[in-house]
Amino acid sequence: MAESLLSVQSLVKRFGAVQASNKFSLEVADGELHALIGPNGAGKTTVLNQLCGELIPDNGRIFFENRQITRMPVYQRARLGLSRSYQITSVFAHLTVGENFSLAIQAHEGHSFRFWKRAADDPVIRRGVVPAMARVGLEKRANTQAANLSHGEKRQLEVGMALAGHPKLLLLDEPYAGMGPGGTVELTQLIQRLKTEVTILLVEHDMEAVFRLADRITVLVYGQAIASGTPDEISTNPAVREAYLGDEVVERRVNGCSK
């Protein structure tokens, strides 16, 4: 197996009496698509927030490229190449699609204490915007205000912005959430394409998508990783079946039939 790009060692996070992360460990290898699944309330988002730095763990350590980042602020992690897309679409609604992308690129191209020159005329930014838009198929929407995009397009923009800085690891937080059946096919194609370019940690509810896309899966229950392995290993793992007992999606998956 390739060397770990991200290594999480027994993360602990409490909110009052609730143990949201309970000695949670995770290894994401360079180049793989690793999925993190778990029933509702298992603490997936808490883990993600600790990885991207919006929450600081009470205990445990996080390494990214063998560098400890446990207490590093969000923006520094982003600069190291750890990029996140949000579950609830989190784009700059009042800016155009092009401006959204140029901000994302600007973040990784030197500092922004430049007060005089028009950002739109900055050659470094201009060079990056078009390919970044093309990557997620939004090049025709450059001058549209983000607020006026369709739901599917907003998701594309969301993912596209996370990709614009050429991250080494992409944290995708439930990209399928709130998607109608129409957009999911395109999204799956997009993620399949991205898989070849960047390491991905995918947090997702949609089991079908997870089992189709993931190289490896980690199952999170009550803040703890109860299993980690290939999709086949996971679907036959008794502890996972136990945790998902009654969840028919996994049942179906495990029994080898899909919708």
Partner: peptide, 29 residues
Amino acid sequence: YRLVHSRFGMVIRGCKENERRMKSLGFPT
């Protein structure tokens, strides 16, 4: 006028709309 259209201006406008996202894009807001 120059300021709000500069790189710096883009950053502060971004902060107004969504500071959390600005941080996760890599800006020390």
